[in-house]
Design a protein around this nucleic acid. Structure first.
Lengths: 332, 332
DNA sequence: TTGTATGCGTTATCAA
DNA sequence: TTGATAACGCATACAA
């Protein structure tokens, strides 16, 4: 059942001109009901499916949205991507997915993406300094930053209030009686990590505790790096009684490191993560975490983009900021 | 920097005809070196990027591969998708991702996909009985089944020997001294789950143990379903000392259920999963599992598809079967 | 070896 | 309200 039926075949079958068929397809007004019906019958009968490629060539839109992520195998991205993919299809759009991991030359590949007449782009992972999208995409098609945003931006964005999230972890821990609280950060080139760090730093001060740089891990946290750090801080005489990890994935590694050092969670050490990925809710892990309400965030990003695409108006960019939610489980 | 430069502009700039530019673009032979060079210079100078949509309209190919998965938020799929996405781009193809979850009418949406002149499709999740792809796609574009395949198939496939994988779990457990081994299956409409079940069943017999239907959970394993099952079998006087779970995700829930029943892993109960997803290797979980070498599988599927696309020859379909590997960790 | 003309399947423009 | 025709950007048959 090859898809070789064209608009012409439908036109012939229905006894009208191709333009009329096109008009029916695009829900034009002012079509005589009987003709419309004939066309619709012909479409059904011939099993006609409009060729999106041809459409796209002339309209410069493709009913395809580019989704740029850092690492699709990261549960945060795969889980949000799912929301975006499903919702998009529901609205008649497909998703072209782009995983930037290990990308040296974003410019080149971005141009490749753009050569497909994308209707719009959702960028799930952009560094704080990146200007590629602003420069290359410019005003040609709508772009929405999601999860992270660069410091200089002329596009819409949907992000979480990461600073606030961090503060929530600290106040939760303080309420539980902790006062020595360690922090494991991530690459500061991303706003998510950077803001979480800032939130930690500020709230430790605000609550009248003292910052101990030895309890703070900066830089890209590899497994070994985390293991060593945890071992080191837990062996201190004034060891911390709680650890805030920048992501759930880090937190899970922290859980292991704590166990390896023969401490127990949460009695000896409490642990909090960020993101509320699926495994965190698995009772075996039961990680207390800051939820960024990622489904809501993803849906909002998509809706914003679709609005920009379909209204086709250049409103002044808006930054939607979602509030974090603390989800208490057994690690605190 | 809008992408408004066309082949005509390049032609004008280089002082040649558009067709010559096209020939350079497509690496034709018989082009005078000096003209070729002029064209190449013009392309660089004008920052020209061929419009893939226009190309696709005429060639009926789109340098886009459809990737159909059941659930992209499932780590197995997100991790294999990543391999496919990266490898594909390296070869000049983009990935249109399609998540079928909750799809009632695959036919309709498949047609929508096909209306985009996809170069080929990789199907990561097809039921044993599905004939949609065979019927709708037919010979129009290449299709490769990946991970799962239907019982009747005229397409290439790349899968793991799931039966063998199951047998490996049993022989591993028997070697460790277990003889009462429970099994948690999944939806039998998928070949992966079905074959893993068959492998369990057959090898229990082959090793001279007796099948106890009460130790076998069939059907779609929800969390509650798993929890209840584990609680039930562990409270039996002749309780099992090992549990084989059809996937790592199930296994992790099993770990929790075991803990809730105050048994310890692996001393009281051993656990094995399938898939070797990333979290399983996290030392905190340390799940023994059967690896299907999913990266290798994914790459093989893509390579097969690309070969079919570019050779454009209809070879007789082949079923590539990958050998499972046992990865021993702390749960057995 | 190169240029001209045509067409891919659709929408947009114009006239009727 | 409808139809004829051009156009989208490119690849290709054919001519030169």
């Amino acid at each position: 059942m090859k898809n070789k039926v064209t608009i012409k075949d439908v036109a012939k079958y229905a006894g009208v001109s191709p333009s009329t068929v096109s008009r029916v397809l695009n829900n034009y007004l002012h079509i005589k009901p009987d003709k419309r019906q004939k066309v619709e019958e012909a479409i059904k009968e011939l099993n006609f499916e409009p060729n999106e490629i041809a459409r796209s060539l002339i309209t410069n839109k493709s009913k395809t949205i580019g989704l740029v992520v850092d690492d699709i195998s990261n549960p945060f991205f795969s889980e949000t991507s799912k929301v975006i993919i499903l919702k998009a299809r529901q609205l008649g759009y497909e998703i072209l997915i782009y995983d930037t991991s290990g990308e040296e030359d974003l410019k080149k590949t971005l141009k490749f993406l753009l050569s497909r007449n994308l209707s719009g782009i959702i960028v799930g992972s952009v560094s704080r300094y990146d200007q590629n999208f602003e420069e290359l995409v410019g005003e040609s098609i709508p772009v929405v930053y999601f999860n992270r945003k660069p410091e200089k931006s002329n596009f819409f964005s949907v992000t979480m209030d990461n600073k606030k999230g961090s503060k929530m972890t600290i106040s939760h821990l303080i309420q539980k009686g902790h006062s020595r609280i360690a922090f494991i950060g991530g690459p500061f080139e991303y706003s998510t990590y950077y803001d979480r760090y800032l939130g930690y730093y500020e709230s430790i001060n605000e609550f009248g505790l003292t910052i101990d740089e030895e309890l703070i891990l900066k830089g890209k946290p590899t497994n070994d790096y985390i293991q060593n750090f945890v071992t080191r801080i837990l062996s201190k005489p004034d060891r911390p009684t709680a650890i805030v990890a920048s992501t759930d994935q880090i937190a899970i590694t922290v859980l292991d490191a704590i166990e390896k050092n023969n401490f127990r969670v949460p009695n000896d050490v409490a642990v909090i993560g960020f993101d509320n990925i699926q495994v965190s809710s698995n009772p075996y892990i039961g990680l207390t975490t800051i939820s960024q309400q990622k489904s809501k965030m993803a849906e909002l990003a998509l809706n914003t983009l679709i609005l920009l695409i379909e209204k086709n108006l250049k409103e002044t960019p808006e930054d939607v900021v979602i509030s974090p939610k603390l989800i208490t489980r057994k690690t605190t």
